[in-house]
């Protein structure tokens, strides 16, 4: 589904990603872990071109998105993104947040877009909030709306950038539950997270990024129980 080949990314003279290669299979749930500043968020943001890539290539669903000829908005419409700080549109209702993309990008009719939005809201348990504004929602509710907004585009892949890091602890569960359900339905997901429980339970594979490279990767059980590199051992000892 996603093939990343020798991805490099620099901000000025500072090289954040120093050659990352990886293959993500359809329906795979990949959790990306690593210390802060390791480049894991930058890696994720490169996957929908929120960061332009310095060198290397990324292919999603057979299309090389790093090709300069790529229609960038079109690529992004196929890749859902959920942000740490939700980034809902505060001047639009929950329903309008979700239908904007389908209406303007996919060219759906109002009825079609609204019907789909209502289905998604029912799925994340927020049917009663369709006409509410984001400011009246809790963090967990906002994030569930943000997930619905991304799903409304019928993405082939979903990217999550620390989706629970800005939430109060008691609200983390409701968001993870939605993500777990999504994974069980077969969505291809790349999740940058500090939720090791989620990575272990839902993840098919864990990638440990440190200092801009994939330091270690593999089955969650193996990564957490038998970390090979010293850096992963030390990272895990700090967070577990």
């Amino acid at each position: 589904m996603i093939t990343v080949d020798n991805l490099h990314k620099s901000f000025g003279n500072h090289e954040v990603l120093k050659g990352i290669s990886n293959k993500i299979k359809p329906q795979e749930v990949v959790c990306v872990i690593g210390p802060s500043g390791s480049g894991k968020s930058t890696f994720l943001r490169c996957l929908n071109l929120l960061e332009d890539v310095t060198s290397g290539s990324i292919t999603i669903d057979g299309e090389e998105i790093t090709d300069p000829q790529t229609n960038v908005p079109k690529v992004r419409s196929k890749v859902g993104m959920v942000f740490q700080h939700f980034n809902l549109f505060p001047h639009k209702t929950v329903l309008e947040n979700i239908t904007l993309g389908p209406l303007k990008v996919l060219g759906q009719s109002q009825e079609e877009a609204e019907q789909k939005a209502k289905e998604l809201l029912a799925k994340v348990g927020l049917s009663d909030k369709a006409n509410a504004y984001p400011s009246s929602l809790s963090g967990g509710q906002k994030q569930r709306v943000a997930i619905s907004r991304a799903l409304a585009m019928n993405p082939k892949v979903m990217l999550f950038d620390e989706p629970t890091s800005a939430l109060d602890p008691e609200l983390v569960g409701e968001v993870l539950a939605v993500m777990k359900e999504l994974a069980q339905e077969g969505m291809t997901m790349v999740v940058v997270t500090h939720e090791m429980g989620f990575a272990r339970e839902v993840g098919d594979r864990v990638i440990f990024i440190d200092e801009g490279i994939v330091m270690e990767e593999g089955d969650p059980e193996v990564i957490f129980e038998q970390p090979k590199s010293e850096r992963l051992q030390s990272f895990l000892s700090k967070i577990l």
Binding site: N48, L50, P73, R76, S77, K78, M81, F83, N87, V105
Partner: peptide, 27 residues
């Protein structure tokens, strides 16, 4: 306007001008 608003517009596939018109400008 918060950078995240531009990114959210980008992330659902809106073009730069659509993001400006529907997301940024009203706020």
């Amino acid at each position: 306007i918060d950078k995240g608003q531009f990114e959210a517009g980008d992330s659902i596939g809106l073009t730069k001008s659509q993001t400006m018109w529907y997301i940024i400008w009203p706020q």
